[in-house]
Nucleic acid binder design. Structure first.
Length: 610
DNA sequence: CGCCCGACTTAGTATCAGAAGC
DNA sequence: GCTTCTGATACTAAGTCGGGCG
């Protein structure tokens, strides 16, 4: 009987293992897609911009944000409780959602929110009652929100699972489209819910109300023969338009509820529709490698010339090439934050220094994309130094440094060397080149003596060099200091253990000669010398590992590695290096990255640039 | 030829779930 | 078993660039 039970249990285990394996395989399938577009005859050809994307095309349209549900919680005005009309309450509720963020205290944000809120108030009986932001107290709504969140977090496992199932069922209807009969995952098919606009930096429109998107501002793109989806969940509404454009990659476009710009709903990064152009991008960077010497000698020559446009564009190109600056198009400061790139640099953003300590040095300090600060000092050639000095002469700080050039001028110049070369290719090229250069520093002779953790560290260091080059930053996490402190304490404790074990070992080896060390922390110490020795090695390893991860954390405090991984570094370089050093790709490429680059996952073991 | 717009890539952050630590 | 940490992902803002248009 007992035997039978054992056998049954074993069988059950085997089945479980099988099921488990199936689940795992399913995950792996994500980057072993059925549609191996990169293996096909026309390969990446259809990834070209403007190329035909499909013959038949079907999808279920867009998922609209749920209606606002009134909670009926009042605000306090001048200490007095006031229940707001629903549309005012809605705005007040969105205001409380920025509680705890920087927006809460930003003047522009508050002003824009208040203008929007007051505009609604003015249409009600409260127009003479509510007039002053300072007298408003939204904390009751904020508290309600907090308690709702608490409730949500405290849901039982079963509740969460049940909710997830309902959710998955609902989204499954929308989540994929059929492109030439192949089921492809979509990107963000959920319409942006109404909220207060969170523009970055000193965006003049931050805090404005971003209106709900209704079908009337959405255009659907779908196959000519496919059934046109209805705008579900918003009865009585109709699409603005239905088109059948097969030379674009979007399934729907809509007008943004605050900026009025057109936004697109497209496919997920894992699909061929996104993957094909992406692969071509890295090939472009690869071709740039073959031309870059020509380009460099060209711009060095033009820097010396008489023609002011040539001189400026050649000097600007130097920055794009050496500092990986973005090209920097013109921006309307009424509509957007004041940020710049190479061509839009102003005199106030550069400072020149030519001293024995810092010969031919240019100090750059400006806000780039997303209002991320670029602060860097570089030693340049004498020629570039003199040119910059020239370009600043007689100009006010707010005037453009390269006043004679603009992105089209620079990009047209690049066309002389390569038909599809533009400024941004330099970033891709420089990022990939830097990664390869850094990884190549690895001494392959050390391969067998180095741990996987150390290999990962080495890779991350290379990755970090790229991120620094591209100026990819992130905010310091709110818990950074606290967790750093904690790690320091852990390190101390490990060191203490190490010392104690060492002293203990000494005593174990020579119980007669040495005094038994006192065990102040009631540590559990081994009974025999052999175990103690093993333990010492183990603790030492733990200390090393701990220190490495501490250093990694500190080094990555402000640097974001993800952006370069996903957008800049040719994945084939990473795959090739991992093969060479016997490191599992999973250690350096998270699943999201692996699924984005299925075409690179089996790249040959050679470097991109050889 | 300059400007605007359509389409697409690149970017940082909020949020959530599962893993790891206590 | 509860809490904290971490990585994945969802979200949406903000760039680039080519082409069309006046």
């Amino acid at each position: 009987m007992a035997k039978k039970n054992v056998a049954a249990a074993a069988k059950k285990k085997a089945v479980e293992a099988k099921v488990q394996k199936k689940v795992l395989l399913k995950t792996e399938d994500d980057y072993e897609p059925v549609n191996r577009w990169w293996d096909k005859e026309d390969g990446a050809a259809s990834g070209k911009k403007g190329a035909k994307k499909w013959d038949t095309f079907e999808h279920h349209g867009l998922m609209f944000a749920p209606d606002y549900e009134s909670h009926g919680i009042p605000i306090k005005y001048n200490g007095q409780e006031i229940k707001l009309p629903v549309d005012c309450e809605e705005l007040a509720t969105y205001w409380t959602s920025v509680k705890g963020t920087d927006y809460e205290t930003k003047e522009i944000f508050i002003k824009n929110f208040w203008d929007a809120f007051l505009a609604k108030i003015k249409k009600t009986d409260l127009k003479d009652t509510i007039t002053d932001f300072e007298k408003c107290d939204f904390s009751k709504i904020a508290d309600w929100r907090a308690s709702e969140r608490e409730k949500r977090n405290n849901r039982s496992k079963e509740e969460k699972a049940a909710e997830k199932e309902v959710n998955d069922k609902e989204t499954a209807w929308y989540s994929h489209g059929l492109v030439d009969g192949i089921r492809e995952k979509l990107g963000a098919y959920r319409m942006e819910p109404p909220q207060l606009f969170r523009g970055r930096g000193e965006h003049p429109k931050q805090g404005m109300f971003k209106k709900r998107t209704l079908p009337e501002s959405c255009t659907i793109n779908i196959g000519l023969d496919a059934p046109v989806p209805r705008p579900f969940g918003v009865p009585g509404h109709a699409w603005k338009d239905v088109v059948h454009e097969n030379h674009v990659q979007w399934i729907a476009s809509f007008e943004d509820g605050v900026l009025g710009e057109t936004k697109y709903v497209s496919f997920a990064a894992t699909t061929g529709l996104k993957g094909q152009p992406d692969m071509l991008k890295y090939d472009r960077a690869r071709r740039l490698l073959k031309k870059v010497e020509d380009i460099r000698s060209s711009y060095e020559r033009l820097q010396k010339g008489k023609n002011i446009v040539d001189k400026q564009k050649a000097t600007a190109t130097y920055f794009i090439d050496k500092l990986a600056l973005r090209v920097g198009g013109e921006k309307d400061t009424e509509e957007a934050a004041d940020t710049v790139g190479c061509c839009s640099l102003r005199v106030e953003h550069v400072q020149l220094e030519n001293t024995p300590e810092h010969p031919f040095t240019i100090h750059l300090d400006f806000l780039g994309k997303d209002s991320i600060r670029f602060k860097n000092s570089v030693t340049v050639t004498e020629q570039v130094y003199n040119n910059i000095s020239d370009f600043t002469k007689g100009k006010k700080p707010t005037e453009q440094l390269f006043d004679k050039v603009s992105p089209p001028v620079v990009n047209e110049y690049f066309k002389e060397f390569m038909e599809d070369l533009t400024a941004k290719v330099f970033r891709t090229y420089n990022a990939s080149y830097t990664l390869q250069k850094e990884l190549a520093k690895f001494d392959i002779k050390k391969k067998d003596r180095i741990s996987q953790d150390e290999l990962v560290k080495f890779y991350n260091d290379a990755n970090r060099q790229v991120a620094i080059l591209c100026n990819h930053q992130k905010a310091v996490s709110k818990t950074h200091d606290a967790s750093m402190q904690k790690m320091k304490e852990q390190k101390m404790s490990l060191k203490k253990q190490y010392e104690a074990h060492k002293a203990h070992l000494k005593w174990l080896e020579n119980p007669d000669l040495s005094k038994k060390p006192k065990n102040s922390d009631d540590m559990k110490l081994p009974k025999d010398a052999e175990t103690c020795r093993r333990k010492i090695v183990e603790i030492k390893l733990r200390i090393e590992k701990h220190s490495t991860s501490m250093k990694d954390k500190e080094d990555n405090k402000l640097v974001s590695l993800g952006t370069s991984k996903v957008n800049y570094m040719d994945p084939r370089i990473t795959v090739a290096w991992c093969k060479k050093v016997d490191l599992a790709i999973e250690r350096v490429f998270p699943r999201t990255v692996r699924t984005k680059f299925p075409w690179a996952m089996h790249a040959p073991s050679k470097y991109l640039f050889d």
